[in-house]
Design a protein around this nucleic acid. Structure first.
Lengths: 109, 109
DNA sequence: AAAGTTAATCGTAATATTGCGATATAGCAA
DNA sequence: TTGCTATATCGCAATATTACGATTAACTTT
């Protein structure tokens, strides 16, 4: 069917999966890393830096923005994209909880 | 084209994205959580617990196994799936590095 | 051997994702 | 106004993903 069934899962599972899914693309990882590294909200630079078409980068930015991983502010004729720390904080604590339970899990096979 | 171009990215970006992508599905999150929680390598139980078809669960297990998130050992007529801690350790440190750089990133817009 | 259990694989239909060029939109500059 | 730049959106083609039923494979029990 190609349609992920969400009626079987908790809201937490759906939310976490959504964030991880959006981050689960190398272009979007590269975009996030670039936004962090350049430390300024350059945006069009991503096109030349990553080497995908402008429309493709714009689409990835849209997805990152849609789930709240980044946020954009219009700044003259360009757009300033930066990290949404609230979402990252939420993701960090959820993921760390998972890591903790993995670490505490005894080997069994 | 539907084909993710990997020639534009570093190996680290591709590897991280691959792990996050596989975890980016609620059924696979539920599977991982269940494997951790039950603390034993039950497997067929996932079908009744999650409520997807047996073939669907098997397919998700295959993907988790393929990227090394879990590992399976044949145990009689059933299979014992459990966490692959080496992969989780790698993922944890990579992700934590990312979280650290996000936290250190100054707000700019 | 025959039947039952468990899990993997195959085939398939429906939907989603990726990437691009072309076009639209909006602010800025001359 | 007329261009120029920056970004978003549209439409499309290629490919990937998701889910399922049916089948297969392998072990267990009778």
């Amino acid at each position: 069917m190609g349609l992920t069934r969400i009626d079987k899962y908790t809201q937490e599972q759906v939310d976490l999966a959504q964030l991880l899914k959006v981050l689960g693309h190398p272009a979007r990882i590269a975009i996030v890393q670039s936004i962090i590294r350049t430390d300024s909200c350059v945006c069009g630079d991503l096109v030349t830096e990553i080497g995908l078409a402008q429309s493709t980068i714009s689409q990835h930015l849209k997805e990152l923005k849609h789930v709240g991983i980044i946020q954009g502010t219009i700044e003259g004729s360009s757009v300033c994209y930066c990290i949404n720390k609230e979402t990252w904080g939420r993701l960090e604590s959820t993921v760390n909880e998972l890591f903790k339970s993995v670490a505490a899990n005894p080997d069994c096979c």
